[in-house]
Design a protein around this nucleic acid. Structure first.
Lengths: 117, 117
DNA sequence: CCTATGTATTGACAAACATGATTTCAATAG
DNA sequence: CTATTGAAATCATGTTTGTCAATACATAGG
């Protein structure tokens, strides 16, 4: 797992040699990085982060009509952000009649959280 | 801190009334969300996430010349990503002669990590 | 000096993104 | 049925992003 890079003091190359040994980054790490980056990207917008924050604090399902007035944004824009979060697997939604309720999928944040700490 | 949204079953509005009570999102939370989203945004690219990953695993300073061959990218592109990470306050850099060494600033990830868990 | 090397910046460009206006869809009430 | 309402999708637009080629900058060695 750990990439073993050398941190030896460098000297100017003898004009031809490569600077460093080419280090191969393991594919599994790349895939994990891609997964985590997808989550991070979805959280990388203040609105979406606050959406997740609100949803998490309620630990239940929240109606879109309650989320929209939290922000100075149009309903379609909030819907757009919720879609992004859905596509990233961070939230799920459920329709009950006219209303749509959103909730956080906690497992979706676990790998990221583990990597971060 | 906790936003107290009601989750009562909804009924169709009497044509005029707003759907829900306007809920005020506290400003302090907005600022925190903005800070965390900045970090998340910077981590929201697979390359940058791997860069941070490598730097963290080494818990020391790593030469750019060792980072570039990890990716199938040009040196300017890697430099660009490192700059993004620097601007987000996630990494710092130090020049020693020709070489530039990068390192993670652990505190930069603390607030995000705390929020996530 | 001059040349070579490691790194950063600039310019350009396609792709992705955030946003709002408008439209579409689904479901409820009458 | 029709009208209305909540939510999602579509369209258009201006902005940001990731990438590389080319260039600039700084430093080390001769």
């Amino acid at each position: 797992m750990a990439v073993d890079l050398e941190l030896a003091p460098k000297t100017k190359r003898p004009a031809g040699e490569p600077c460093c040994e080419p280090v191969v980054y393991p594919d599994v790490a790349r895939e994990q990085a891609a997964r985590i980056a997808t989550i991070a990207k979805a959280l990388g917008d203040p609105i979406r982060l606050q959406l997740v924050d609100v949803l998490r604090k309620h630990a239940g399902k929240v109606c879109v009509c309650e989320l929209v007035p939290l922000f100075d944004l149009s309903q379609p824009t909030v819907s757009h952000h919720l879609k992004k979060l859905r596509e990233a697997g961070i939230v799920g939604s459920e329709r009950r009649g006219l209303w749509a309720y959103y909730y956080v999928i906690p497992e979706s944040l676990e790998e990221f959280s583990a990597w971060l700490s």
